[in-house]
């Protein structure tokens, strides 16, 4: 209950700050020096937030779709041969630092939102894929046996049993992807993507801690909200199946 009130307050605070950032100048004034501005105004914060979220949203949707398709393919009889390899590639792929992936995407994509999107997409594939794999292969064997025994076709088993049962775990993967992408997208501003990272970097370049704080704060609050939102969805999906503890 207290948690919900706090989350509600966070949403309101975030909206108020994004719509009228200058009315919060008093909050950030103590962190400035030499009469530097307390609020970043080169680009409106709400527009940076929107393009940040759009970037993350596109990346998460794209990685979820592709990762789900791949996970379904390698768990079907025709794709089973790829399963062990897929597991290895996922494990190895997740050790690749997101920043390095971002930097390496620049020569291919040029500067701007492109390389950021590619890096977020590639990096986001892995958690969803890993979780979808766990969800699709980790089901109670009796359920699969009963589904086959009652005459569900392979496709019906996938859509009516396997995917609905894997849903909470898949949502967990999406949560990881979304939260990681949200943070990594800020680094995208080093390659000229329009994200909230722009505010932080402006703060770093002009030694204005107020900018660093407000950029970090907005991303942090959104991350907490995303995290909680996904967890609520996961709990709802899991409660239906009685799989939650």
């Amino acid at each position: 209950m207290i948690g919900r009130v706090l989350l509600g307050a966070a949403v309101l605070f975030l909206l108020a700050f994004l719509l009228t950032p200058t009315s919060f100048a008093w909050l950030f004034q103590p962190f400035t020096r030499n009469n530097a501005p307390a609020i970043y105004t080169q680009t409106p914060l709400w527009s940076l937030t929107l393009s940040h979220l759009a970037l993350v949203g596109m990346a998460v949707v794209a990685s979820t779709v592709i990762a789900l398709v791949l996970a379904v393919l390698v768990t079907r009889p025709a794709g089973r041969e790829f399963l062990p390899l897929a597991r290895t590639v996922t494990a190895v792929g997740q050790t690749f630092p997101p920043v390095a992936v971002l930097a390496l995407a620049v020569p291919i994509m040029g500067f701007g939102a492109g390389p950021t999107l590619v890096a977020l997409f590639l990096y986001g594939l892995l958690p969803v894929f890993e979780n979808a794999l766990a969800g699709l292969t980790g089901q109670p064997p009796q359920v699969a046996e009963a589904a086959r025994g009652m005459g569900l076709t392979p496709r019906q088993r996938l859509t009516q049993v396997d995917l609905p049962l894997a849903l909470p775990v898949i949502l967990g993967g999406m949560r990881l992807t979304a939260v990681i992408s949200l943070g990594t997208a800020t680094i995208g501003s080093t390659v000229a993507a329009k994200t909230l990272g722009e505010v932080i970097i402006a703060g770093l370049l002009s030694s204005n801690t107020a900018f660093v704080l407000q950029g970090g704060m907005v991303v942090g609050i959104i991350a907490v909200l995303l995290h909680e939102g996904f967890q609520t969805l996961e709990r709802m999906a899991a409660a239906r199946t009685g799989l939650n503890r």
């Binding site: 109670p140 009796q142 359920v143 009963a146 589904a147 025994g149 005459g151 049962l165 239906r240 009685g242």
Partner: peptide, 17 residues
Amino acid sequence: LRRRIGYAIQGHGLFPH
């Protein structure tokens, strides 16, 4: 064929969702 034959197993195998 399986839709015409009833099948029940140990641990019931009910669809939890």
